[in-house]
């Protein structure tokens, strides 16, 4: 309640007048009565409200029916479920292990591919002119890089496939 130096201000006085069930009771409160005696605006408001209050209190409304509440509830819950965004699935530990193993072995994969490229170059250089041999090795490097990249990129998708069909995976093992 807003009280300024022990006295009600207009806002607090108006609030008490509005919330009083009986306006006679509002005046029983000495702080309201004191304020009303001094404030012409609040006094006029009380007087006006005192005249219309019995009429205003006759304006009754219906409670919502049970059916209406159920309908509202149903639609609100439907809306609530539509709001939900699917949560991001946590990283599967199995997939994490596969990714880790493949990343650890990546230098070895690169080394093997490099050795294969060098061997391929040596072989083609014996049979073909040097320029053509370099071209063939270049092609080999491009295709090998693509294969390794796609191989690694497919790991999460393979992991997702495995995660969504655990039953089939177990059946295959047994």
């Amino acid at each position: 309640m807003n009280v300024q130096q022990g006295r009600l201000d207009c806002q607090a006085c108006e609030q008490r007048i509005l919330s009083a069930r009986n306006l006679g009771c509002a005046l029983l409160d000495s702080s309201v009565a004191d304020h009303i005696a001094e404030c012409r605006e609040c006094s006029a408001f009380l007087e006006s409200l005192r005249e219309v209050k019995p009429a205003l209190d006759q304006y009754r409304v219906l409670e919502p029916t049970t059916e209406l509440i159920e309908t509202v509830l149903c639609r609100a819950l439907q809306q609530g479920s539509e709001n939900l965004v699917p949560e991001r699935a946590p990283i599967d530990p199995g997939l994490f292990r596969v990714l880790l193993a493949s990343l650890v072995s990546l230098p070895l994969v690169i080394l093997i591919n490099a050795l294969m490229g060098w061997a391929f170059y040596e072989l083609t250089a014996l049979l073909l002119p040097r320029t053509v041999a370099l071209y063939c090795v270049g092609l080999f490097v491009v295709w090998a890089s693509l294969a390794v990249s796609f191989g690694y990129a497919s790991l999460p998708f393979l992991g997702a496939l495995v995660r969504h069909s655990p039953g089939r995976l177990r059946a295959a093992k047994s």
Binding site: K53, P54, A55
Partner: peptide, 10 residues
Amino acid sequence: RSKLGPRGVE
């Protein structure tokens, strides 16, 4: 107050 008049005086 002016529309409903003083009929509802408590």
